[in-house]
Design a protein around this nucleic acid. Structure first.
Lengths: 120, 120
DNA sequence: CAGGATCCTTTACGATACTG
DNA sequence: CAGTATCGTAAAGGATCCTG
């Protein structure tokens, strides 16, 4: 007979794995966290604003990632009626629910750096 | 003397972005979360155990991902002195600190599924 | 300003076969 | 059992040019 998992972990591990895959798939790629992080702090930003904030990204990638994020309702895109058109990107309420995820990733990453500096 | 950033633009955000990139880079690829999640629950597992637990992975990818994770001290590898050699993979204390990160990713993913089912 | 279209390089990943 | 070696495909990403 097989050893059974102990107390503190939920037995639904397959469901959890699937959930993690979902999340990672939605946030896949090199830039999505940057974009979301920037929009969570920065309220409304235009395409060029984002280009300036996100170091190294090109128009193709930015455009594509923004579309992905919009499709998943994490950000919203609003075309303004200006002389040359401008666009305002912002985080949605739903996208803002990613804040805890981002915080965990960030603080683990910071702890990681510290542990590397302290040797080990 | 060094210029100091002023109020509104927190200089901390760049550090946080870097931290997120660090974390994602360490956990990059299609399988690392699966492996870590499996080892967090499963205590000590052999190579073939992991193959069975992680649906769809091949020997090449498993081998490579395990090496990556070991290099970053997230898992440990112990060669046992048995007839055909066996290996025990397990999560390190340090690797276990990823649990909160994994939990956030999982619960966000679950909430995402629910929100999709409920239409929107 | 906000992007789409094209081309090209690089990396990730997978299938299969083989070894101590 | 625990991998390595080799090969081939697909996806990701970047550079550049072009348009309304």
């Amino acid at each position: 007979m097989k050893k059974k998992a102990i107390v503190n972990d939920t037995p639904v591990c397959h469901v959890r794995m699937q959930a993690i895959s979902d999340t990672m798939s939605i946030l896949s790629g090199k830039w999505k966290f940057h974009i979301i992080g920037t929009l969570i702090e920065g309220s409304k930003l235009g395409f060029m604003d984002l280009m300036r904030e996100i170091d190294g990204i090109g128009t193709k990638m930015l455009s594509k990632e923004l579309q992905d994020l919009e499709m998943n309702h994490l950000i919203s895109r609003k075309v303004m009626d200006t002389k040359p058109i401008t666009v305002e990107y912002s985080i949605t309420e739903y996208g803002a629910t990613l804040a805890p995820v981002i915080n965990e990733l960030a603080s683990w990453g910071i702890a990681y750096r510290n542990s590397v500096y302290e040797g080990k």
